Amino acid sequence: MQDDNTRQPDQKTTNRPDIHSLSHKDLLALFEELGQPKFRAKQVEEWVWEKNASSFDDMTNLPKSLRAALSERCSMGGVKEVVKQVSQDGSRKYLLRYSDGVSVECVGMPSRGKLAVCASSQAGCAMGCAFCATGAAGLTRSLTAGEIYEQVMHVRDDFDTRVTSVVMMGQGEPFMNYDAVLGALRKLNSPEGAGIGARHLTVSTCGVIPMIKRFANEPEQFTLAVSLHSAVQRTRDMLMPGVKKYSLLHLYDVMGEYVDKTGRRPTYEYALIKGVNDTEEELASLCDFCRSNLAHVNLIQLNNVRGSKFQPASEARAQEFVRRLASVGVEATIRNSRGSDIDAACGQLRQNVERALRR
């Protein structure tokens, strides 16, 4: 565990917009008001989105008087790294705090010269999934597109290497914060942002059906993952009460429409829970749900969470799921567990830090 205050959020943000929230058009209007040439907007955007500047003073190709004027008009946003945990496998988990005191988690996962980031879309989550540490704490607020983007840049700068993929699988339900998530994805994809290929940007949803339909109509080839966790309705309703109103039959139909419209293969996330969704009935239902769908099943070894009644299924059971799914023509893999020696579960680090502070 490490406490790092290398990047402090701007504390004097009253009535000053975060510059990450300003569009190119907004910046052009601002510079016209300040009597500055239009090219200044491009310079500022490069500092904000590509270089991840932490202060207007960092913008050394801008006149000092302009930097002062920008500081009076806008804030830089920014995050404070409250805690960093480093795993033996090289993964790093961060608890980051924004200027209003709200904190979120994100994770950097290096592998064979690549760097993946798991980012949060909300502080907390309202979906209430029974096995999730984040869901137990409830929702604090949604994040802005800039705040989501800043998580990725924080990890990039800490590793001092380019981020090659991002998964929106951290805290929150991304499709309950759709516009901000899409804005962050587009900036992460943009050559004037992080420059990450669209197919390497993944959104994971519990199955918010109206937003899956909307996502299918977006022009970019972003990747979709659906947290399934059971293909038996009563089990899924118990595990995932936040999407109880969306039936598995409806989800099945919508995912077929998604594949037909996009031609892209979605992933179904399935956390194997001993005695709950690893039974023969559950396996047979999962095979039936996936067999005629273009899909990949990502089997997850459940993280141990303090106070949880759920336990992970055995490795042998996970292998049996892979074998049986393969027998009906469905590719499945067991997700390599990263950071198992630290607070790996979403929301777990935040909970443990807050618990320690209350002592």
Rank of each mutant, 00 (worst) to 15 (best):
T223D: 12
A137H: 08
V167Y: 02
C129K: 03
M255A: 03
V276S: 00
V226C: 02
A231R: 00
S340K: 15
M76F: 14
Q36H: 10
V330K: 02
V155E: 02
A344N: 10
V166H: 01
Q171D: 10
W47R: 07
S71H: 13
V44I: 15
V79T: 15
S71F: 05
E281C: 00
R97C: 15
R199S: 14
S142G: 14
S285T: 02
D179V: 04
G207N: 07
L299E: 00
P63I: 03
G242P: 01
P63G: 07
P9R: 14
A318E: 04
H200C: 07
T140F: 08
G101I: 12
S190G: 05
S75W: 13
E81S: 15
R40H: 12
N5S: 14
R186M: 06
G347H: 12
V243D: 00
R335S: 01
F159K: 05
S337Q: 13
V276G: 00
L34H: 06
G183Q: 05
S308L: 09
E331G: 05
Q151R: 10
G275S: 08
A345I: 11
F39Q: 05
F215N: 07
N61Y: 02
R199V: 09
M240K: 00
F39C: 03
P241M: 06
P9D: 07
R335G: 01
D3M: 13
V167W: 04
L34Y: 10
R162K: 12
A318W: 01
V226W: 02
R358N: 05
R323K: 14
Q171F: 03
E147R: 13
A356V: 13
N5F: 15
L283A: 00
I342M: 12
R156G: 03
M1T: 13
Y98W: 15
R16I: 10
F222K: 00
L325Y: 02
L143M: 11
V322C: 11
Q311E: 04
E150D: 15
M168L: 14
T164C: 06
E331V: 03
Q221M: 10
N336Y: 11
G197N: 11
V117P: 06
A316N: 08
D158G: 12
M169A: 07
N5H: 15
G101L: 11
R323Q: 09
P266I: 05
S121T: 14
N15P: 01
L349W: 13
R92M: 12
I273A: 01
G242S: 03
Q85H: 12
V328K: 08
L294V: 09
S103N: 09
L251S: 00
N189S: 13
